[in-house]
C-alpha cells in the first residue's frame, strides 16, 4: 500500500469484522530515537495460537478462503524493509493488538497518508465499534474518542455526514499540531 494509513484502515477493518466493540488506534513518532510505531488494539474475538502463528503467512491466508487477506503479510514486509518489525498479540475472547514499528526516516518507509480520512471511515462504524485515536509526536499528544464525541453531540449521531466531514479535518489539524513528520 502506498500509504501507512491504508494499512491501518485494513487492520482496523479486521478488528471490526472480529466483532470488536472498542478499537484503539495509536500512532507514536519518536523523533529522538528515529522510530515510528503504529498500534491497533481491539476487544474482538481474538485469535488462537494456530491462527496467530499463521497471521503473517501470505500462503496460509490465501488458502483459507482469505479470512484476513494479505494485509498483515504485506505490513510485516514493509516493517522489515524499514528496519522495524510487526508484533501481534492476541487472546481468544479478549482481543488483538497489532504493533508495527519502522525507522521513521527510512527512505523506503511509506508516508503516513491521510489519517483524517481513515478516522472518518472508521467513525462510520461508531455505533458498533467505538474508536479512540491517538497521535503522539515525541511528548505532544492529540487524542479523540468517538464515545466522548457522541456525549458532546447529544442527539446528533457521530455518523452524521456533517460530523464526519468536520472530524476528518479536525484529525488532520490535530496531527499537524503535534509537529508530526510522518
Amino acid at each position: 500500500m502506498r500509504e501507512l494509513s491504508l494499512h491501518i484502515l485494513d487492520i482496523a477493518r479486521n478488528s471490526i469484522e472480529a466483532g470488536a466493540t472498542a478499537l484503539q488506534v495509536s500512532i507514536v513518532e519518536h523523533q529522538d530515537t528515529d522510530a515510528l510505531e503504529l498500534i491497533v488494539r481491539d476487544n474482538g474475538r481474538g485469535m488462537d495460537e494456530d491462527s496467530l502463528r499463521h497471521a503473517t503467512d501470505a500462503f496460509y491466508t490465501t488458502r483459507e478462503t482469505r479470512k484476513v487477506g494479505l494485509g498483515l503479510p504485506l505490513l510485516k514486509a514493509t516493517c522489515e524493509r524499514c528496519e522495524g518489525a510487526l508484533d501481534i498479540r492476541s487472546k481468544p475472547g479478549e482481543g488483538t493488538e497489532v504493533r508495527a514499528t519502522m525507522r521513521l526516516t527510512h527512505l523506503d518507509r511509506p508516508p503516513l497518508g491521510d489519517m483524517g480520512k481513515v478516522v472518518q471511515a472508521l467513525a462510520c462504524e461508531a455505533e458498533r465499534t467505538s474508536l479512540r485515536y491517538r497521535h503522539q509526536t515525541n511528548g505532544k499528544r492529540f487524542e479523540i474518542d468517538t464515545r466522548d464525541l457522541q456525549k458532546e453531540l447529544g442527539n446528533v449521531p457521530v455518523t452524521d455526514p456533517r460530523v464526519l466531514c468536520w472530524l476528518a479535518e479536525f484529525v488532520r489539524n490535530g496531527i499537524l499540531s503535534t509537529g508530526s513528520k510522518a
Binding site: 500500500m1 502506498r2 491504508l6 501470505a58 500462503f59 490465501t62 494479505l70 503479510p73 504485506l74 514486509a77
Partner: peptide, 29 residues
C-alpha cells in the same frame, strides 16, 4: 509495490519487479 499488483494484476500477465520476498508469489498467484 505488492498491493498495487494485487489490485491491478490480471490473469495471464507477467510481472517485472525487483522484489524477492515470498509474498510476490502469493500476489502473483
Amino acid at each position: 509495490l505488492l498491493s498495487y499488483v494485487m489490485a491491478e494484476g490480471k490473469r495471464g500477465q507477467v510481472w517485472i519487479t525487483i522484489q524477492t520476498h515470498p509474498n510476490i508469489v502469493a500476489v502473483a498467484g
